[in-house]
Structure formats: structure tokens, C-alpha cells
């Protein structure tokens, strides 16, 4: 606890922890629209198997998840639910925005009820473009995220809020 907070984390320990974190991601699938089918194909079909990257796609609740993949169009009616989902996840958490609807509104950029990109609500780490992106594209996005985690500085990520008990 003290090492991370004070910023005195040795590099080798940091590397080891990052290595173990990147190969054990629990991904919560927030599958909304068509991209959810490609995400399902990536996560559940034997052809584009995602478990070989160490990603386990079946956390029971967002409170057990490291990564959330927002796949599909986010509408203004659904936006508060997405925010609540993001706030429920414990740190360190990552967000992959999959598909052009989640990136920037996509083909519905001029609609009156679509949120033009999920990054208007929550911070996004990796954007996977496509409409829908092939399952391999999503796998590449996850690999990029893994590289990002590997190069992460844990102290910089720690927000510094003390854990208050009682």
C-alpha cells in the first residue's frame, strides 16, 4: 500500500505486476447493438477465441470486472446507465470503445437521440473502429490495451484517495 501511494515502486515489481494484470483481464461485455454480435463471436466462438489472450469474458457483475467493452450505439436514454456501470467498476479499470457508434456516433452522427461517442460520458482507453469491426479487430484492440497496461506506471494511475474505514 505504501509503495504505490508514495511513488517508490521498484521498476521490476511494477513490471511483474503489470504482466500479471495484463494477462488476467476480466472483461465485462456491455453489448448494445450489432457490435455485440461480433463481440460475442470474439468471446464465445471457438474461431476467434479471446481466452488465449488471458481475457476471461464472464465476470458476474461489473464490480468484478477490469475492462468494459462498450459495443454498440449509446443513446441518450441509456447514457446514465453507462455512467453508473463505469462508476461501479473498481480501479484500475479500462474501457474499450468498439465500433463507430461508440467511438463517435457512427452512422447516426446526426440523430436526435444518440450520444455521439461514449467518450462524452466515460474516459476511453482504446478505440476500435469498424462497423462492425471484425472480431480480429477487437482482439487487436485488446492486445493494444495489454501493451498499454504493460507500460503503465502504477503510481501515476493511483488516484491518491485514501481508503477510509469506519
Amino acid at each position: 500500500m505504501g509503495l504505490v501511494e508514495s511513488g517508490r515502486m521498484p521498476k521490476s515489481v511494477s513490471k511483474l505486476l503489470n504482466l500479471s494484470r495484463k494477462y488476467s483481464i476480466w472483461a465485462y461485455q456491455w453489448g448494445l447493438a450489432c457490435c455485440a454480435i461480433e463481440m460475442g463471436a470474439a468471446f464465445a466462438s471457438p474461431r476467434y477465441d479471446v481466452m488465449r489472450l488471458g481475457v476471461i469474458p464472464f465476470p458476474a457483475t461489473p464490480r468484478q470486472a477490469d475492462l468494459v467493452v462498450i459495443a454498440g450505439t449509446v443513446t441518450d436514454k441509456l447514457a446514465p446507465a453507462v455512467l453508473r456501470l463505469y462508476e461501479q467498476m473498481p480501479d484500475p479499470k479500462y474501457v474499450i470503445s468498439m465500433g463507430s457508434c461508440a467511438n463517435c456516433g457512427g452512422p447516426y452522427w446526426d440523430s436526435y437521440s444518440v450520444t455521439k461517442g461514449v467518450d462524452q460520458i466515460i474516459p476511453v482507453d482504446v478505440y476500435v473502429p469498424g462497423c462492425p469491426p471484425r472480431p480480429e479487430a477487437l482482439l487487436e484492440g485488446i492486445v493494444l490495451l495489454q501493451e498499454r497496461i504493460a507500460n503503465e506506471d502504477m503510481s501515476a494511475r493511483w488516484k491518491g484517495d485514501p481508503i477510509v474505514v469506519g
Partner: peptide
């Protein structure tokens, strides 16, 4: 929304 005088604001800002 489906009335013709309801504008699509994104297109007012940036015509495609």
C-alpha cells in the same frame, strides 16, 4: 422529432 420543423442539430452545425 418527426415534425419537419424539428431540426437535426448536428447537421445545422456541420453539413455533411
Amino acid at each position: 422529432p418527426l415534425r419537419k420543423d424539428f431540426p437535426l442539430l448536428s447537421r445545422r452545425v456541420r453539413p455533411w
